[in-house]
Design a protein around this nucleic acid. Structure first.
Length: 301
DNA sequence: CACCAGGACGGGA
DNA sequence: TCCCGTCATGGT
């Protein structure tokens, strides 16, 4: 047994291919790279940047995590990486009740058929999640991916492996002393540039962190903590609760993609309003984020 | 050239 | 509190 590889038990249901399909949706994704059997990405583990490969042996019911540099992991590093991988693929969630909910609802049953085993792919790093949400405000996804790539390319750490370049999303500290103008040169709007610098500064100073947000007892407090930052509105806060904090009840009602998905689902002639979305989801309490995530998939498959 | 895109903000009723 | 105009930038 090589100490550079470890395994995690897979929950049921779990469909790795569904997760990979989601992650492959944009050819512009720059933070990880997929192939036929898994995904590689550069991650900071402890104080080192490690190239990590994730695959699944679904017959044995395990996920395999491999360090591509072949070097072993300390126990502490392995625990940290395990935490990250579990959050990335939402391995600790029991989806059985969710599948039951889908199957028992005529409106949602098709989702169970099409996406069974798909996990809500997370963005465990708060800074990355916030930046991704900020660059994604009110622009199409293709452009959002370009902006993220430019951020990673200019400010992130890179490592080459087998002819491909892998990038670590920049750390908040990297933006200390950066100007709004330098971010705007990447074609971020002024407001987005200022928001990212503000978030970076708060996180680097320890005032804002994922752990602190997780310790708040209700979603309203989280939204309040986040939306007090200029440039972070309700959509961004809800999005971060959904993709980063693992809040099953998060529902980005202002999301135009979700609105379009529901419009399609119900055969409406107009996009539903946030209020209408909220009322619709009242019948599925506790699984808002998963239903929203699955509905997003219906726009791309 | 119009309209859209996985919004945010501020002023006015 | 809710509504609405405005900002801002690339894609289609």
């Amino acid at each position: 047994m090589n100490a550079s590889v470890f395994e995690l038990a897979l929950p049921q249901p779990f469909d790795f291919q569904q997760c990979l399909d989601y992650m492959t949706r944009s050819p512009l994704e720059s933070l990880y790279r997929m192939d036929y059997s898994g995904v590689n990405r550069l991650l900071r583990v402890g104080s080192a940047d490690r190239l990590v490969r994730v695959t699944c042996l679904e017959g044995r019911g395990v996920m395999q995590v491999q360090m591509l540099d072949g070097a072993s992991l300390s126990l502490e590093d392995r625990e940290q990486l395990t935490r990250y991988i579990k959050d990335w693929f939402d391995l600790d969630r029991d989806l059985k009740p969710f599948i039951k909910l889908l199957q028992g609802d005529p409106l949602l049953a098709p989702l169970a058929e099409r996406f069974a085993g798909l996990r809500l792919v997370g963005i465990p790093d708060l800074f990355e999640a916030l930046c991704w949400a900020i660059v994604g405000q009110q622009v199409n996804l293709a452009f959002a991916y370009k902006l993220k790539h430019r951020l990673a390319e200019r400010y992130g750490i890179a490592a080459d492996w087998e002819g491909a370049t892998y990038r670590l999303f920049p750390l908040p500290e990297r933006f200390a002393g950066e100007s709004v103008e330098s971010l705007c040169s990447l074609q971020l709007t002024k407001n987005k540039a200022m928001a990212i610098l503000d978030v970076a500064s708060r996180m680097a100073g320890g005032e804002l962190s994922r752990d602190k947000l997780l310790k708040l007892n209700d979603s309203e407090s989280v939204d309040q903590e986040l939306t007090k930052i200029r440039g972070i509105g309700p959509w961004t806060a809800q999005y971060v609760r959904m993709r980063c904090l693992g809040d099953q009840t998060a529902l980005p009602v202002g999301d135009v993609g979700l609105q379009n998905a529901v419009k399609k689902l119900l055969g409406l002639s107009l996009k539903p309003t946030p209020l209408e979305l909220s009322a619709l989801f009242d019948q599925w309490p506790g699984w808002e984020s998963y239903i929203a995530f699955y509905l997003w998939r219906t726009l791309e498959v």
